[in-house]
């Protein structure tokens, strides 16, 4: 450029930058926000609207206002006299899902906490290898991992064959297509989500506190529950939430391991948009699931705030 800028060019450039910063930021953010707003958030609005419409004959909706979807969740309309009778079918699917997700969370915690602690107590180089081993399954296809689990828990699967060869059982245990299978599958799917946040909080653990506990004549259990667990609490809570939420909305695990008969919320919602052709009811069920997730997150946020103010 031939026209050399004055010495204060940098200063002016910075000043100009400040003024144009807003504009720059706006156009840099615009594409990402547009895509997410249009493809992920706008549809949630449509889902809310759809949940108050009437199902179309071949799927989709007809534009007639109705609260039937929400009524149908709790009641069944009698075909003859149009009275409402309490129907526990859908509520029980939700309760089943909550129960399975809670069970999976506890199971993942029982396996995940000791694993995270074990990794945190290792020297640094070894930690990285262990962490890599824990993270890797997370990036492999969940469908394929679930299918692999199906292969080993089948009646003819490697677990039954090994147990029979060892003479522990004489006929194969039926695990596949039971609640146990779904429970095992959920733990298996989301276990890394439990280990990683707990590890993150234990990584910073000052082991001299553990030592102090022992010096004060605490036994191992006391040190574990009065020193280590309280210090790891943020990680434990985060891990539980990260396991519970995807487990609650799971689709693939119950689909493959529950054999499509042991339904969870996710399958029920998908079904309404497939064979059942009741989009409004599916939308309503999806929104109820969302509400459950939001409640969990809100309770956590409130507890965190209370914890912070107690400490402060």
């Amino acid at each position: 450029m031939s026209d050399r800028q004055p010495p204060s060019a940098l200063a002016t450039a910075i000043a100009n930058n400040r003024r144009s910063e807003r504009a720059t930021r706006a156009w840099l953010l615009a594409p990402a926000l547009t895509i997410i707003l249009a493809i992920s958030i706008l549809p949630l609005g449509i889902t809310i609207v759809y949940s108050f419409l009437t199902p179309g004959t071949y799927g989709g909706v007809t534009w007639e206002f109705s609260t039937d979807s929400y009524v149908q969740f709790l009641f069944q309309r009698d075909i003859f006299d149009d009275t409402l009778v309490f129907n526990s079918a859908y509520v029980s699917i939700f309760l089943r899902s909550i129960g399975l997700a809670l069970g999976a969370t506890i199971g993942a915690l029982i396996l995940g906490f000791p694993t995270a602690y074990f990794i945190a107590s290792k020297p640094r180089e070894q930690r990285n290898i262990w962490l890599f081993l824990i993270t890797l399954p997370f990036w492999t296809n969940l469908l394929i991992r679930t299918y692999a689990m199906l292969l080993i828990i089948r009646d003819e699967g490697i677990i039954n064959i090994m147990l029979m060869k060892a003479g522990i059982i004489s006929s194969p245990l039926t695990i596949l297509y039971t609640d146990t299978a779904v429970f095992i599958g959920l733990i298996y799917s989301f276990l890394p989500f439990m280990v990683l946040p707990i590890y993150a909080s234990l990584e910073k653990l000052d082991f001299s506190l553990v030592e102090a506990g022992y010096d004060l004549y605490a036994n191992r259990l006391k040190v574990l529950f009065h020193v280590i667990v309280p210090l790891a609490k943020p990680g434990i809570v985060a891990g539980c939430i990260l396991v519970f939420i995807p487990a609650l909305g799971a689709y693939i695990t119950p689909e493959l391991l529950g054999g499509g008969k042991k339904l969870m919320i996710g399958n029920m919602i998908a079904m309404q948009f497939g064979a059942s052709r009741n989009w409004p009811f599916g939308s309503a069920a999806a929104l109820i699931l969302m509400a459950l997730v939001i409640v969990v997150l809100l309770v956590n946020a409130l507890a965190a705030r209370r914890g912070a103010s107690n400490n402060g």
Binding site: L29, A32, L33, I36, L37, I39, S40, I41, L42, P43, L44, I46, T47, Y50, G60, I245, P246, L248, G249, Y251, I265, G266, I269, A270, F273, W279, G282, S283, A286, L287, L289, M290, V293, L297
Partner: peptide, 26 residues
């Protein structure tokens, strides 16, 4: 802005799936 960008991570995938289906059908 962070909330919006990370939103796809926070909503159960099945909900995003049926919501997107509804939008695209429309």
């Amino acid at each position: 802005v962070f909330g919006i960008i990370n939103q796809p991570l926070m909503i159960p995938e099945i909900v995003t799936a049926i919501a997107t289906l509804s939008l695209f059908a429309l």
